[in-house]
Design a binder for these strands. Sequence first.
DNA 1: CGGCTTTTTGAAGTAACTCAAGACCTGTGG
DNA 2: CCACAGGTCTTGAGTTACTTCAAAAAGCCG
Lengths: 254, 254
Amino acid sequence: MIAADTTSAPLVNVTALKSSCAACSMHQLCLPMGLEDADIDRLDQIIGKRRRLERDEPLYKMGSPFRNLYAVRFGHFKTYQINASGEAQITGFQMAGELLGMDAISADRHHCDAVALEDSEVCEIPFGNLQDLFGQVPTLLRHFHRIMSQEITREQNVMLLLGNMRAEQRFAVFLINLSARYAARGYSSTRFQLRMSREDIGNYLGLTIESISRLLSRFKKLGLVQVDKREVVLLEPARLKAMAAGTEQCSPMA
Amino acid sequence: MIAADTTSAPLVNVTALKSSCAACSMHQLCLPMGLEDADIDRLDQIIGKRRRLERDEPLYKMGSPFRNLYAVRFGHFKTYQINASGEAQITGFQMAGELLGMDAISADRHHCDAVALEDSEVCEIPFGNLQDLFGQVPTLLRHFHRIMSQEITREQNVMLLLGNMRAEQRFAVFLINLSARYAARGYSSTRFQLRMSREDIGNYLGLTIESISRLLSRFKKLGLVQVDKREVVLLEPARLKAMAAGTEQCSPMA
DNA sequence: CGGCTTTTTGAAGTAACTCAAGACCTGTGG
DNA sequence: CCACAGGTCTTGAGTTACTTCAAAAAGCCG
């Protein structure tokens, strides 16, 4: 359907795919949030080309030089760090409207790898140009600070999760978090596809793939969720929320 | 020695304690890093009064309205989140030259508690004024972005630690991290005081106080460190670094 | 000193891991 | 279309790293 874009000549590609924030369905969640039309135009002018990625294709690698932030247009990504012994830790899953690459600002090099979980598209946002624009559009600057701050609080929440939650609570938090993010994008909050493997989920939550599988089975048996391959239905979101908050728990095989 | 300041009248206090970044020993690590003298002066003009805190005194609480960022002048702080079930997770320890409160920008409310670990002093940095200054001093803005980005990467490193390191590696990372930060401040990298309790360390590392105590005993027995109360000497920093990197490990009681 | 908190150490328990095997899916080529 | 190979997921059995519980030792401070 859209294969023509990817096979066309580069020049056409760049031109055809030049972004327009105003026309993008994500603009109320993304960088241009709250901007006036005139300012959105100015943002459009500095935003680079779109970039399409296949499943498993890296958007950037740890250590590569930092030039752009990326806004997810559609699809999903994961970001992960690799330690000295070669093991990975997934630090986040990103979906449409979310910004990638902010960890690279401090050292001018990317601090983690970002990989597409499915066929996806991003807008390249040349950071140098964005910085120039900050001086002219204070609203944009403020919103950018909010986005960075939000990333900080998101990570603090993950630290809380990894530092002192039991497996079932971690998993409930994970499901409820996805649910809320899909809801914010106009999708169902109770029925969605997991775009990542069980292994990715386990890695992100500091658990093994087997634990995730068992957790899913348990939640299924308890009537909390319905699962078919990667399709998930949250049957009892309220109880899941309570579990995520830590006010309710389910015994290990009631 | 400096008690006179705290007991003097408020007005005198504010005046006497008005900050001067140029004169501050931390200015090459803190917000004014890399600024020209003229710009440091402009920063000085917006920076609020200093605030002195006693051990265990809160700097801000979760949910309180966000007005200021804080730069630590001396002393140490911890920041922590409290979940619905009332348990805390320490998200960081801050020392001189480090910035507190960036997690509050996104929601205009503080997202965690910050508490002094010992008698400490901070500079209040009214965020509104700082934002005004960003438009006039681009260097300052860029450095601010670097600081926020650095906080993001720091937290990603903690996620890596909590998500897939064994207890001994976590603890080695913790010690090496403190060592490097003291070194950057001109203090010994091999001999320093732990400003936080064993319980705080355990909480931060996702371990129990008993585990920390056992780890310390083991490291002591292995000749890696010397410990007397809260005074720590790193006897084999190279091996500790290797453990932190994951390239070396010590068996559970060799 | 005496009461308090913090730290250490030991013994027992357990949540989650590892190992292992089989089921299930998915895509490829005959 | 089926067969088969390679990955992903599930389930079970046994192990273990860390926790929990408990008690004593050490430090702190009025």
